[in-house]
């Protein structure tokens, strides 16, 4: 069973989608929300597997709402006509549906979701794992100006502190998010993400090379070519973890 929330400011649009979803018994619509803040509230309290999200809503857009979430659930965007938003959106969204929604397209989108689920049983472990820690299978939504991405934590190789922001390195992108490195460290799985020094958190699975550095420290070269120094104090911890 996939537990879904519909977020759309129009009652009729929500009804229409619910009606279409009746043909898919594996989807259970557990709640509806009429704007972004209601949406955040319901996602936090109900922890759905999937949300159907309208992009244009009063107050905050769907994108704004996603970037407020700690952990982005699977998202299917629904929009009437929004070429700009779709263009701005990098390809790795689960899917988007154009309203009025074609039943065939909806079936395809849900099938895609099913395939994802089979690969990694997301719904199982999100429930079992302590909610406050993000696993490497979790995805986050990153918005930087006009551009947006869904990023699996396992694809992020480096967080770098820049003032109040953190720069997130993945692929060829490094957008900024409004989170402190300390707050991030608390939420990240320490088996995967390691605080190398005051300014950097690295993904241990995406290290290319490890070299000794002066003063007893280490120099890590990440898969993207970034060179990160491990402070002396953290080096002890690092060696402990790696020798395990």
């Amino acid at each position: 069973m996939i537990r879904a929330i519909i977020i759309d400011d129009e009652r009729l649009a929500r009804n229409e989608l619910k009606k279409l979803l009746m043909d898919f018994p594996e989807i259970e619509v557990i709640a509806e929300a009429a704007n972004a803040s209601e949406g955040v509230e319901k996602i936090d309290s109900l922890n759905p597997d999937l949300i159907f999200l309208d992009i244009q809503m009063p107050g905050k857009t769907g994108f704004d709402m996603l970037s407020e979430l700690e952990r982005a659930p699977n998202v299917i965007f629904t929009t009437a006509y929004d070429e700009y938003a779709l263009k701005a959106f990098e390809v790795n969204a689960l899917d988007y549906l154009l309203k009025p929604v074609e039943p065939k397209r909806l079936a395809d989108a849900l099938q895609k979701l099913q395939l994802e689920e089979d690969k990694e049983p997301i719904s199982e472990h999100t429930i079992s794992v302590n909610r406050s820690i993000l696993s490497e299978h979790d995805q986050v939504f990153v918005k930087d100006g006009e551009r947006c991405w869904f990023v699996k934590l396992s694809d992020i190789r480096l967080f770098e502190s820049v003032g109040n922001y953190a720069k997130v390195y993945f692929g060829a992108n490094k957008p900024l998010i409004l989170k402190s490195l300390n707050a991030l460290e608390e939420r990240l799985d320490e088996k995967v993400f390691f605080r190398a020094n005051r300014k950097h958190i690295v993904n241990l699975r995406l290290i290319e090379k490890i070299e000794p550095y002066f003063n007893g420290g280490l120099l890590l070269e990440m898969k993207g070519g970034e060179k990160i120094e491990v402070s002396r104090r953290q080096t002890v911890k690092f060696k402990e973890m790696m020798s395990l």
Binding site: Q56, Y81, P100
Partner: peptide, 8 residues
């Protein structure tokens, strides 16, 4: 945007 929303 209006046309498609109306149709929906």
């Amino acid at each position: 945007h209006f046309i498609f929303n109306a149709l929906n």
